[in-house]
């Protein structure tokens, strides 16, 4: 077991009141497993992973619950200890490669900086390692690429550089936050391929955050669907996509236009928009948009329950 998150709660004090960005999230991650986390804006998918990385620096945030990395509790760990893990054992890839790299340093410098932050090796050795890494993420000319500045590379190449940086210390856990959302599909396909390949070669476990069901279904071993700060459904890729149980998962899958076959005249759309975390509805947060909601959904809040394939829905529990 690489990562074990139990009942994680993250809330922010704001001028408009307390915002519960994450409300009781639990999940496990095995070695070299890819967990897909799906959700819309405000679902808490990014915040939960920032919490795992210890990257929530907002002084108004409070984090409760337990995050265990290889059995070691991360919540409440001193910053210095956390820093030793970050970039070394736990690495992160961000959404927008355009802004994720410091504009004034070369790619090589930035990757070497990370290696030297965690390993006591010479600059020349670090640079040699950078070249290897860039070759591994398919840079056509790794030696030349090292001396390039971020703005001199295309979006796809920048994201490869970010991935090379994340891999530089052979992390056991890789957290990827929508790493392909800002890229073209053709480039995305290459990046997804790369993530798959690296999981095999580096044996890293991957948490892959995305809003794209297609991406998850191509990449993930297991999937977790989030809505308004809670996990509404989890299961293996096969379980979730061949037998989606939560009405939100079903609706989300149904609203994706098909790429083949007959075009529906109208798409089955979910009414309304995701709720504001400041004004969450009573009971089940998806209730007001749910096609099958009934009385229990207004008063009670369904739990996810146990089992590998589970959905937080009274209708599912009832069936």
């Amino acid at each position: 077991m690489i990562l074990s998150v139990r009942d994680l709660k993250v809330s922010f004090r704001t001028n408009d009141g307390l915002v519960r960005a994450i409300d009781g999230v639990s999940f496990d991650l095995e070695e070299s497993e890819i967990l897909g986390v799906v959700g819309e804006s405000g679902s808490g998918k990014t915040v939960s992973l920032l919490a795992v990385m210890g990257l929530i620096t907002d002084p108004n945030a409070s984090i409760e619950g337990s995050i265990r990395y290889k059995g070691r509790e991360l919540v409440g760990l001193p910053p210095r200890e956390l820093r030793r893990l970050r970039g070394n054992e736990i690495a992160m890839i961000f959404q927008d490669p355009m802004t994720a790299l410091t504009p004034v340093y070369t790619i090589g410098w930035q990757i070497a900086e990370q290696i030297r932050a965690h390993q006591n090796i010479s600059k020349a050795k670090a640079m040699a390692r950078v070249e290897e890494l860039l070759a591994e993420v398919n840079f056509p000319n790794p030696h030349e690429a090292m001396s390039r500045y971020p703005h001199q590379l295309s979006g796809g190449m920048r994201q490869r550089a970010v991935i090379a940086m994340a891999l530089s210390c052979n992390p056991a856990l890789l957290v990827a936050d929508e790493p392909t959302t800002a890229l073209d599909v053709t480039v995305q396909a290459g990046i997804l391929d790369l993530v798959r390949k690296l999981r095999a070669t580096h044996k890293s476990a991957v948490v892959f955050i995305t809003h794209d069901m297609g991406v998850v279904s191509e990449l993930a071993d297991r999937v977790m669907v989030m809505y308004a700060g809670r996990v509404v459904e989890r299961g293996s890729r096969m379980e979730l996509f061949s037998d989606p149980r939560h009405p939100y998962t079903r609706a989300l899958l149904g609203s994706i236009p098909p790429l083949t076959g007959e075009k529906p005249r109208r798409l089955p759309a979910i009414p309304g928009s995701p709720p504001s975390l400041l004004r969450l509805p009573q009971g089940c947060a998806f209730g007001p948009r749910c096609p099958v909601h009934y009385e229990p959904c207004v008063t009670g809040r369904p739990d996810l329950g146990i089992g590998t394939h589970a959905a937080a829905c009274f209708r599912v529990a009832q069936a």
């Binding site: 820093r83 970039g87 070394n88 802004t99 994720a100 410091t102 932050a117 940086m165």
Partner: peptide, 15 residues
């Protein structure tokens, strides 16, 4: 506030 500062933190650099 920039994204690349978050990246730098994720790299495990000191403040």
């Amino acid at each position: 506030q920039e994204d690349f500062i978050r990246t730098a933190r994720a790299k495990g650099l000191s403040e």
